[in-house]
């Protein structure tokens, strides 16, 4: 069952940017695309232990700040070496002026 957790405010992320969100011992990355829609993925790159929230958002891609690996943060697809493993994505919804991330009850 999905549990909705408040991650940040609507204005905390500029369009085409990303924010780190830590919860329950896990780290997530919350994205806002150029059109203003929100998305969420695991916070750490699947290649090495680097937080994606320090990376650059370009359109619908996030670039790892250390190695130039890229993911589509809307689908989680790994797009460019050295990343080979897809990124886990999470549902996101807007409730009032807050952004919520949907996590399984165990998370």
């Amino acid at each position: 069952m999905t549990k909705w957790i408040e991650a940040c405010g609507l204005d905390d992320i500029e369009p085409e940017d990303v924010l780190r969100f830590d919860h329950g011992g896990a780290s997530f990355a919350i994205y806002r695309d150029p059109a203003g829609a929100f998305f969420a993925t695991d916070g750490l790159c699947t290649h090495e232990r680097v937080h994606l929230a320090d990376g650059l958002v370009m359109g619908d891609q996030i670039e790892c700040p250390k190695h130039n690996g890229r993911f589509n943060y809307k689908t989680g697809a790994a797009l460019r070496a050295p990343v080979c493993v897809n990124l886990r994505i999470y549902p996101v919804r807007v409730a009032g002026d807050r952004v919520e991330i949907g996590l399984e009850e165990t998370q």
Binding site: H47, E48, V50, K66, H67, A81, P82
Partner: peptide
């Protein structure tokens, strides 16, 4: 070398 340099940065 692309992979070796990635490791150099890690």
């Amino acid at each position: 070398w692309r992979w070796s340099h990635a490791r150099h940065h890690t």
